[in-house]
Design a protein around this nucleic acid. Structure first.
Length: 263
DNA sequence: ACATCTGTTACGGC
DNA sequence: AGCCGTAACAGATG
């Protein structure tokens, strides 16, 4: 699930259903031995407060309590948040549960345990500690061109490097490269100004587009790569055939016909 | 049984 | 000193 648009959808979920309700109790969920969730002291800091805002930086999600600490969440490979009511079944793989006064509950769930939840003083601290770059929807064209264009490795790896810009992962990096006709292994330093500008524009359009659907992929245009991430499928932009290859350790789908290596 | 997976980090090499 | 590439992390799923 969780690259920038998917995390944005979760942020909205919190914004729509978990703000301005008094937190009665925060408790660990199931099987938390190998996952970082707040200890009793951290959980206590949230009790009695209300979340007043939900923010996001790249793939990191933050729920801020009024005058108090923030709940910071990272979804890892498969995490999510879910709202439900007491009386409903507790969601599977719930690792942390926020119980509001009344029936409302917020669960942080993480089947694969690559995510975490922590109570922090301010999002800026977490962003600085992880050395995250600007959010991918906030980075300007010039900074983008500089950061990606100076990268000596594969452009795909650069797009996914959270210190350069935060929020792009495997799926939307592939989509950006596909829609701009860029081979994933092109070196950043081989990209011309025009291509860097195109990449920035396409990345923005793609991330914004996915956010607009609330990360519902079936609502995205048929021509997008997201619907054809499979070797042997027909390219929607030329007469090529899609193929896959490991780039930066991640499976990368692309069209060898129209995704060129050079600028 | 075996491979795969939408992320991050520690570590080794250059 | 940095930058880059890879392996490892844990567990569900097909």
């Amino acid at each position: 699930m969780p690259e920038l648009p998917e995390v944005e959808a979760l942020r909205r979920r919190i914004e729509d259903g978990a703000l301005h309700r008094t937190i009665a109790r925060v408790r660990p969920g199931n099987d938390t031995a190998h996952i970082e969730v707040p200890d009793a002291a951290g959980r206590k800091r949230l009790e009695g407060r209300q979340f007043s805002r939900a923010t996001r930086h790249g793939k990191y999600l933050f729920a801020g309590s009024d005058g108090g600490p923030w709940l910071a969440l990272h979804m890892g490979m498969a995490g999510s948040v879910r709202l439900y009511d007491d009386g409903d079944a507790q969601p599977d793989y719930a690792r942390l549960i926020v119980e509001f006064e009344g029936d409302r509950r917020l669960a942080f769930r993480d089947p694969r345990k690559f995510g975490w939840a922590r109570v922090i003083d301010a999002p800026e601290d977490e962003i600085a500690a992880r050395d995250l770059g600007p959010d991918a929807l906030a980075i300007d064209a010039e900074t983008f061109a500089q950061r990606i264009g100076q990268s000596r490795g594969a452009v795909k790896s650069a797009l996914m490097a959270q210190e350069k810009l935060a929020g792009v992962g495997n799926l939307w990096a592939d989509e950006t490269l596909y829609q701009t006709g860029t081979h994933p292994e092109t070196r950043g330093t081989d990209l011309g100004d025009g291509k860097l500008s195109d990449l920035h524009t396409a990345m923005r359009r793609i991330l914004t587009g996915v956010c607009d659907t609330n990360a519902t992929y079936s609502d995205l245009p048929d021509a997008w790569l997201i619907h054809r991430r499979e070797t042997g499928r027909a390219c929607s932009r030329c007469d090529g055939t899609l193929t896959s290859e490991k780039v930066g350790g991640r499976t990368s789908y692309f069209c060898p016909s129209h995704q060129e290596r050079a600028a």
